[in-house]
Design a protein around this nucleic acid. Structure first.
Lengths: 228, 228, 228, 228
DNA sequence: TATGAATGAGGCTTCATTCAT
DNA sequence: GATGAATGAAGCCTCATTCAT
């Protein structure tokens, strides 16, 4: 049996390296169109090495969701803390805060977000172990919890209308983010024109205007830099 | 004239039948997890028959997008005509109109929408012939055109703010729809609770409030049956 | 995708053909050293064809046990019937009868017997579905039942000693058969000399002498053609 | 002289340790279903260490046959010596002597016997170097030689019939042992009831009765503790 | 001596697609 | 038109073996 020279790297390096390559491929061609073989070839490592660090292809795939999911939790928590410290002055500011957290997330890991989306689309359910499913769901639930808390605080501080439903609003904020990302990426593939920032900003400006009690156009102008 | 029962189903019938079965399976298990064999078995027809009517599996898959895409075009066109006939009285009404078109579309063909989404996510690009791609893109562009026209008309009629960007708004309407559908379906799989109508209605109510010059809460109440 | 010409055979033919090839390979090289690929190549059929008729490699393997197991049941049942018809005249005759059933089984399907042996050795337990396991166990239990019945009848007819334990004797008859087959095959591989018939006959002659009340050397001579 | 604890185990210790672990695994799950990794993990040593002491997996496997094969040779030789010293008084005693050697062998190393069996079944032939094959064959031939010698001596001493064929009888003794072990282990796996001793004893009692000139039931009773 | 990360040949299995009937 | 047996490329995964440390 012929075995090539092993070139050693630290566990962390390898894992990151493999995840990066996997993400690149998954992003370009979709999960099902990417093969483990290709990931290995891309890194010039053996196929077996991938399986040394990940139980199977799905495990690798799902591991890509964790960083972005955790990052979202962290970002939202930090956001909440800053609200507690009085760093936000009105509702527009709060909605802009959501925008910033989400857009940072996109900048941090666009591929990861795509994977979360495809996870949400349910294409992986049959293949996932129920533990993994639970882990991911817990992370997601945590983020939702923080989002709702933030909305409740904003209501209490009189920044947004007290009549708003924090469950619906949290859903809509996230859904809008995901929907716009998906749409703009699709358009980008066809036209090579990147309107993500602009459109996302516009969408959150609309939400700001709709949710803030005391809004006037000057605030929209200030926080979103546009006139509605 | 008396005619005996036809031994074979008509071309149209067969095609519809196969598409229905395929859609069901694709919806339940995803494209890659459904096999042509399974589709045929579901219909109790031979596998070869599927290939008689569709060039290949991808062709079948892509064909499922057409009805929903066309239906959207038709729905929006009809909407536009009704505006021209003066059937809408204000901006809330218009946004509610969009909601109705989109929600009808969902009722008409939820699976089809999922397929459009996965198309937008780019999972099929490598497999699609450029002609098919063009056909679908044209249908999509048509719908976008109608949406923008409607927004322009609403602006002209003074129903919504003149400062609004019809390109951004059309994107956001569609993105919000897609994002909410995806999110709520994902939640439905986990919780079996269906909040789609409620959340979608809430989202469009927010957009209505944000976009209509003259809104007051009574109109939101009237058209969306809720208080913001 | 390039697909070769299909050459059609009847379901039965194909199954038999595949089983024959598999048996040949398994016999020559053992289960684990035979590949599905090789079976297909041997028959000049596609690998997929094997999987069209057998759920998986184990299923194919296990299917090879059925004929020999059934044949044994049939052989023993026939033997029992003949005893009922008074066709056997003494204990030596009965033991010779067992010899004949077993040796015919070997002639009928030597490879199948080897597979039964390796099954008994437990190398397949982890891989077998519990239903298959049950099916095979039931067939085996049936044969054991018939063997014990025959022994009981022989006791009742005064052919063999009444003190004999039919459970132990049934076990020993089968164990001796299996043990001798295994040993002589092993020797055959090394020396190319086939002593199976001779040794098996000798072994059953010994058992005959040990179990029959009324034996004398002339009966051993008559039924086993040798002097002890 | 005071000596510090050795940091590393001695060569002999390591080898024995690895063999013990390997035997345990091979016995439980079969050769092909056991991995080198698992053996190493069981011992909490590195996989490479196994390869330091054994050329490869097959080498390790085959090495497991040596102790039991040697032990058999020793046991039979000791048996022969005792016969020479006049410690056996009749044929039943001799056959019981064989039983004792074989059953001790089983107690000494049941797993080893299983491996010898699978070797006899030929599952390892393709993988074995011809030197190893020769070594093992020589050991086996030696044991057979001793067995035949014992039988010849027993004949000369008038303990067993002079007409008996020592070649056939040696084969049958070993084959019966192997066959019963295999059968009873198989039954044990299914029923958890251990009848090995009982059945083996019964089988050798039958052989005793068949081979000894002067037997009467009291001797069977004395040496095998049962009535035939 | 001992380790364990790395390798890649090789096996099993799936399934889109074809084509003789 | 309709069928389904046959195909084989292609993918996933295992694991014996190596070798730098």
């Amino acid at each position: 049996m012929i075995v090539g020279k092993p070139r050693f790297k630290s566990r962390e390096e390898r894992i990151t390296e493999i995840q990066r390559a996997a993400k690149k491929l998954f992003f370009e061609k979709g999960y099902q169109n990417s093969t483990v073989d290709e990931i290995a070839r891309l890194l010039e490592i053996g196929k077996g090495t991938v399986y040394f660090y990940f139980k199977n292809k799905d495990d690798l795939y799902i591991s890509l969701m964790t960083p972005v999911t955790e990052e979202m939790g962290k970002g939202l928590k930090k956001f909440e803390n800053e609200i507690d410290k009085g760093k936000f002055e009105n509702g527009c500011d709060i909605i802009k805060g959501f925008f910033k957290v989400f857009y940072s997330l996109y900048k941090y890991d666009a591929e990861g977000i795509k994977i979360v989306q495809s996870f949400q689309q349910g294409d992986l359910f049959p293949k996932m172990s129920s533990e993994t499913f639970e882990t991911l769901n817990n992370l997601a639930r945590f983020s939702y919890g923080v989002m709702r808390n933030i909305i409740l605080k904003a209501k209490k501080m009189g920044f947004i209308k007290k009549t708003l439903d924090e469950f619906a609003l949290a859903d809509i904020l996230w859904a809008t983010f995901i929907g716009v990302v998906q749409l703009e990426e699709s358009k980008f593939r066809a036209t090579k024109k990147d309107h993500l920032y602009k459109t996302l900003n516009y969408a959150f400006a609309l939400i700001a205007r709709a949710t803030c009690d005391d809004y006037d156009n000057s605030k929209i102008k200030k926080y979103f830099d546009l006139r509605l």
